[in-house]
Amino acid sequence: MMQSLIDFVREHYCTNDFIPLHAPVFSGNEKTYVTETIDSTFVSSVGAFVDRLEHDMAAYTGSERAVATVNGTAALHVSLRLLDVGPGDYVITQPLTFVATCNAIAYCGATPIFVDVDRYTLGLSPKALAEWLATHAYRDDCGYCRRREDNGVIRACLPMHTFGHPADLDGLVRVCQEWGLALLEDAAESLGSTYHGRHTGTVGDLGTLSFNGNKVITTGGGGMILADQALGERAKHLTTTAKQPHAYEYVHDELGYNYRLPNLNAALGCAQLEQLEAYLAEKRQLAADYAACLAGSDVTFITEPEGCRSNYWLNGVLCADRDHRDQLLKVTNEQGIMTRPIWQLMNRLPMYANSPAGDLTNALWLEARVVNLPSSVRQETEEPS
C-alpha cells in the first residue's frame, strides 16, 4: 500500500521532488491586486481590499457580517470576548484540535474543559458533551451553567471543524441551548464546507476562519469573524483598538486590540477568493482519487460526514494502530512525501495538563491512527470561467 500511495501522490503532482502537505497557489490576480495596494500607499489596516474581502466573505458564507483580523487566533480571541468569556470562566472544547483553539481561551483568563470527539466527524461529540454536563455541571437560578466542582461559570462551547469536516452542529446546538451555553465555531480549516446546506461558522452564535499560508485560501496570515450585525459591529470596534470615530481626536472607550487585517494581506485574499470554487473542486476530486487509490488497502480514507460537504482541506487516513501509523509516517517522509500525524491531544500539553477533561476514548483512538496526506491544489489550477 505504501509504495502505491507514494506513486499515486507523485503522479498526481507530477514531480519527483519534495511534496509538501499543503502549499499555497497563486495563479490569479494576486500580483495585480498587491501591486495596486502598494501603489495606493494604503497597505495597513485601512483600505479598499479590506472592505471588499469582508463584503465578499460575508456573501460567500451567508453571514450577516464578516470582520477581518490579523490571524485566526485573533478572531477566536475577540469572539470569546464578544461572548463575555473572562477570567475564571470555563469554555468546553475538544482535545483533538490545533493549539490556537485553546490558547485563545487562555488569553481570556479562562480554562478549557476537554470533552471527547466523534470518530465519524473528528469534531466535538454532542453525546459526550451532554454526558459530561449531566455529571459535572448544573444551571443556577440565573440560568448560568456552572461546574459542580468549584461553581465556576461554563460560558461557551467551542468545537472545531477538523480538517474541514463539519462537526455535528445540530446536536451541539441542542445541548448548548439546553445548558445555556454560547456556541462558537472554530471554522479555521473549513472555508467552503457546509453542514446541511449552511456554511460552517454560521450555525452557532459566532464563527471564525483562518487564512494562514496552509489553508484553502491564504492572505499570508489572517482570519475572519462571522457574526450577526450587532456582534459584527462590536467585533469591528474591538479589533480597531476600540477607537471612537472622530475627525482628529484619539478616543478609545474600552480595552481593544490592534487586530485588523492589513490591506496588503486583504488584496491577496481577494484574489484567492476569486479562485476558491476551482480550488474546492480540485480538492474534492483529489479526495475521491485518494479514496479510490486506497480502497481495499490496510488504511481507511476519512470521508465527509453524512449531510455535509467538506472542503477536504487535509485528506486523512486511519491506520490500524500506532505502530502502523508510525511506519506510514516514516516511509512517506523518507521518500520526500510530507505526511503528518494528527495533533497531540491538548490535555497532554504542559499548559493544559491540569484542565478538566472527560472520557477521551475516541480522541485517544484517533490520535494513535490518523495520518494526513499531501492535499495542495496543483499549480496549474485556473480560475473558473
Rank of each mutant, 00 (worst) to 15 (best):
E64M: 14
P112E: 01
G88T: 09
A110W: 09
R119A: 13
V115I: 07
V115W: 05
H55S: 14
T121P: 08
Y60L: 15
V85N: 10
A128K: 10
T61S: 14
T93E: 03
V67I: 15
G72N: 01
T121K: 08
V91P: 05
I113K: 00
D116N: 03
V117F: 01
N103P: 00
L133Q: 06
D89N: 05
L96G: 01
L122G: 01
P95G: 04
Y90S: 00
A68P: 13
A134V: 01
I113L: 03
A130Y: 10
A100Q: 11
F49N: 12
Q94H: 09
C102T: 15
A66T: 13
Y107W: 11
I105L: 03
F49T: 05
P87A: 12
R81V: 07
L82H: 10
L96P: 01
L82N: 09
G88H: 06
L96E: 00
A130W: 09
E54V: 04
H77I: 13
A137Y: 03
D56I: 05
V99S: 09
R119G: 11
T73Q: 05
Y120F: 07
E54L: 07
I105N: 03
S63Y: 07
R52I: 02
R52C: 09
L124G: 04
V70G: 04
L122F: 12
R119N: 06
P87F: 04
S125H: 10
A66H: 13
A128S: 12
P112Q: 01
A128G: 11
K127I: 14
V99M: 07
D84V: 02
L133C: 10
R52A: 12
Y138K: 04
F98K: 09
L53H: 11
V50Q: 08
A75P: 04
A58H: 13
F98S: 11
L124D: 00
N71H: 07
Y120W: 08
R119S: 11
L80E: 12
Y120M: 06
R139H: 04
R52Q: 15
N103L: 10
V115A: 05
C102D: 12
R81C: 12
T73V: 02
L82K: 10
F114P: 06
M57S: 14
T97A: 15
H55P: 00
G86E: 10
G62Y: 11
G109E: 02
